[in-house]
């Protein structure tokens, strides 16, 4: 086995194990911490694919910011296994069913697409490096890029308005 293969299998096993632990952990704080492990494993995969920029941004944004906020909320609400309301049996079965069918669809969609996946690998090995990524983003994909930035801006404005509203009602 080459080192890339060893890394791939290790990271895949880690990601799967972490994802399972996210679901099976009784304590919500443990779930969040396992999710961080999953993000690390996925970032490792990005590095193996030579997409260093994506790997580090994935860590900064998801593990460094979003998960901290998750942890924040969970810690402040002090959720425990006892105080957490248990979902009914039917709801659980429905969730398992819908999740299972989603997996079925994903497997069906990806099953015969090996040609496309290998095409992605051979296209350009250095596409994940920050220079090439920036060039592609600002030339070929500039319209979707700008549209997504508008989406982010509207989300920021929305968040600020929601926060302000709360403030003015409590003060008046």
């Amino acid at each position: 086995m080459t080192i890339i293969e060893i890394l791939f299998w290790f990271l895949s096993a880690l990601a799967l194990f972490g994802a399972l632990m996210v679901v099976f952990s009784k304590n919500p704080v443990h779930s969040v911490l396992w999710l961080i492990v999953v993000f690390f494993a996925i970032s490792g995969h990005y590095i193996v694919l030579n997409a260093q920029f994506l790997a580090i941004v994935n860590l900064i944004v998801y593990a460094g910011a979003i998960m901290v906020l998750f942890l924040f909320v969970i810690m402040l609400m002090n959720m425990n296994t006892e105080s957490e309301p248990q979902k009914s049996k039917w709801l659980r079965m429905a969730a398992a069913l819908s999740g299972g069918s989603l997996m079925l669809i994903l497997v069906a969609a990806l099953k015969d697409n090996t040609s496309k996946v290998t095409g992605m690998f051979t296209a350009e090995a250095n596409i994940g490096l920050i220079k090439n990524l920036g060039k592609v983003l600002f030339t070929d994909y500039v319209v979707p890029f700008e549209i997504s930035s508008v989406l982010f801006l509207s989300a920021i404005v929305g968040a600020v308005i929601l926060g302000k509203k709360e403030n003015s009602t409590t003060h008046s």
Partner: peptide, 14 residues
């Protein structure tokens, strides 16, 4: 690494 500064930033955020 060619993302050195970002790496520093990532570790700080962790």
């Amino acid at each position: 690494v060619n993302i050195g500064v970002l790496y520093v930033f990532g570790v700080v955020s962790l």
